[in-house]
Design a protein around this nucleic acid. Sequence first.
RNA 1: GGCGCCGUAGCCAAGUGGUAAGGCAGAGGUCUGCAAAACCUCGAUUCGUCGGUUCGAUUCCGACCGGCGCCUCCA
Length: 480
Amino acid sequence: MPNTPPSLFNTLTRRVEPLQPLAPPRVTLYTCGPTVWNYAHIGNFRTFLFEDLLRRWLERSGYDVFHIMNLTDVDDRTIKAARQAGKKLTAHTAPFTKAFFEDRDYLRIKPAHVYTPATEYMPQMIALVSKLLERGVAYKGEDGSVYFAIAKFPTYGRLSQLDRREIKVGARVASDEYAKGDPSDFAVWKKADAEDEAVGAAWDAPFGRGRPGWHLECSAMSLSEIAQCCGVQTLDIHAGGIDLIFPHHENEIAQSEGATGQQFSRHWVHGEFLNVRGTKMSKRHGNFLTARDLREQGIDAAALRLLFFQTHYRQSVDFTDEALEAATEGVGRLGEFHARLAESGKRETGDGPLGGLSVKLEQDVATALNDDLNAPRAVAVLFEFVRAANRELDKPEPPRSVARALEAFQQVAGKELLDVLPTRRAVDPATASWIDERIAARAQARKSKDFKAADAIRAELAAQGIDIEDTPLGTKWKAR
RNA sequence: GGCGCCGUAGCCAAGUGGUAAGGCAGAGGUCUGCAAAACCUCGAUUCGUCGGUUCGAUUCCGACCGGCGCCUCCA
């Protein structure tokens, strides 16, 4: 366990608070995943990336994280999309679920320990509805759907400060309003209609054939999973996008606590939006970009990771090509440094200033991330380390403490944490030996001062995506 | 209308009641046959505007201007 526990802003209290898991070192983490009606866009992935960093940091801090992510594969949008595609629900969502996993891997997001598709948790959801009905906090409406009675749940609205709100007149014109006791009551179970039946989105239940309300799945699946893994009814952290605070998370709390009588989640964290020219990226606005779009453009996922980590997760950020290019340059700098450090290690001769810089890097990164996951500061610290270390490596005397520096750098920038090192294009052995032959030829040309021929060879290599660099230790090459 | 967020150099973006991190871009320099990489130097007398509190505010309070989000099964 770390001496200083990580602190995070808690939406429940609107304050940055130390993380206080129910049973450390275990941390149960539930993150709201994608609705698999279509490809997720990079705005969605900004949230998943912030959660990825949170998870990695908790693990680095010594916690034993159990990470659950749901996949919403039955809701209004998936049903509508399936209907339009003329497919059954599952036939429509399955490819998008697969695509989500591909995108996740491309973006180097660590897989959750459990992915819970809503359609695979029908028994748990039906049981939860039954319990809510038994406890009298839910009721069957005149239309045959089951609603949660918020009047029976006095703390309703705490998360979103709803008690301090007024609903805009006319903002909530639900067609099923007549069926509900209170206009603000929300459906936990929706009576099946013809469209639901047509795509196979209807299940039998004691309280009538239908399908789960959107919020129900998160309550049922998270409670089911943490009961199974850890024997508890309270999550340590529940995370999602800021738009989910109301009504989604508010309703999850009502349903879960209404059923268990226990606090649903101790800590709530929400990530801000990714904007495009000031407006949130969304399917509705049509200003979105998917992860596969970036991959097709040959964008290194490291660049997107760095771009996102350079802004605090509770701050909205504008996505622009310029920003992505800037991040790509930054990632390149980290890659250059990494290669230089690895090369220098071969000539290491003992301890030196890089040791102290390494300790400082680790400490400063920890301080930054413990403070409400301040990734931008961690990134700044990383670049400060790069500059200071380069300065050391520029000195004429042989490098010292390089192994230590390499370890610290990789721990922060590499797979363990930020994961922002560039991926170099792989080169097959035949090409590699051709490159070596060309470089040797160029060296000959340079030796005989035939710079014209030397530059021609450099251009020839560049045309093949191979950049070369003359260093005191010889000519190096790298594939673009 | 209600609730909430934001406005810091050309662009992106941290931050603190005591005088402004980092990245990208730009200029000059060192090194180099050239290039690349790296390093050094330079840039906000200033943090939307106007007031207030304070010995002192970018940081706290108020007003205003500008942008955005949620209140519509949106990450």
